[in-house]
């Protein structure tokens, strides 16, 4: 039994310290999916907290670290899609999503910050399911088969959503920046 399994076993007995360790280890995964999907810090925090509360209730059913990661992505994906359908958040962008200053962005990557913003806007405009598929594919680096398992749909559906979403994003981006984007 490795360290993670021990922490899981301890958390399953109701050990809060062990559970806190698990939360800190995986909070970025849950938060990133929720935030990139909802583009609203308040809603993202709400969803992420609910996911970890559900994890606390069901921690005894988690078998391993890989299972935990899969479970978190699956529950976060479903909760985000439900939330988006209820709140129709893809039509809104909250004030805390105002673009960051250029200098802060360039620390992380060499990409054009304007392009990144336009791309995020375009992603937010996608319907809930393809938006979540795009996030799981390009943020969590999941294969279509893993996405299909997490969102409980067929691999072909995932591939078709992915293909169509990329075409839509390319078109939107080309329109907004002017000219084709390869």
């Amino acid at each position: 039994m490795d360290e993670t399994d021990e922490v899981l076993a301890q958390a399953a007995t109701g050990d809060m310290d062990a559970f806190a360790q698990l939360v800190r280890r995986h909070q970025a995964v849950v938060w990133s999916i929720a935030h990139r999907f909802l583009r609203d810090r308040t809603l993202a925090e709400e969803v992420a907290q609910d996911v970890f509360l559900e994890l606390f209730r069901n921690i005894a059913a988690i078998k391993s670290d890989a299972h935990l990661l899969f479970w978190l992505r699956k529950v976060t994906g479903h909760r985000c899609i439900d939330k988006a359908r209820r709140e129709r958040t893809h039509l809104q962008v909250s004030l805390d999503e105002v673009p960051e200053p250029f200098e802060l962005r360039t620390k992380f990557n060499a990409s054009d910050p304007l392009l990144t913003d336009k791309l995020r806007e375009a992603i937010t405009g996608l319907p809930a399911t393809p938006r979540m598929i795009i996030i799981l594919r390009y943020q969590a680096n999941l294969e279509p088969m893993e996405i299909a398992a997490a969102l409980e749909m067929s691999v072909n559906t995932v591939k078709s959503h992915l293909r169509r979403a990329i075409i839509v994003l390319r078109e939107k981006l080309s329109r907004s920046i002017g000219g084709a984007f390869v």
């Binding site: 809060m16 559970f19 806190a20 939360v23 800190r24 909070q27 970025a28 995964v29 849950v30 938060w31 990133s32 935030h35 990139r36 810090r41 925090e45 992420a48 907290q49 970890f52 509360l53 606390f56 992380f108 990557n109 990409s111 392009l115 990144t116 791309l119 995020r120 992603i123 795009i134 996030i135 390009y138 943020q139 990329i166 994003l169 390319r170 981006l173 984007f181 390869v182």
Partner: peptide, 27 residues
């Protein structure tokens, strides 16, 4: 390049400070 841009736009990020503590408090 487009896929690279998608990865950059969707890069993982840390939650706001005190996120884990707020969950534990709520529990």
């Amino acid at each position: 390049r487009f896929e690279d841009e998608l990865r950059i736009a969707l890069r993982s990020e840390e939650p706001p400070a005190g996120f884990a503590d707020r969950i534990l408090e709520r529990i």
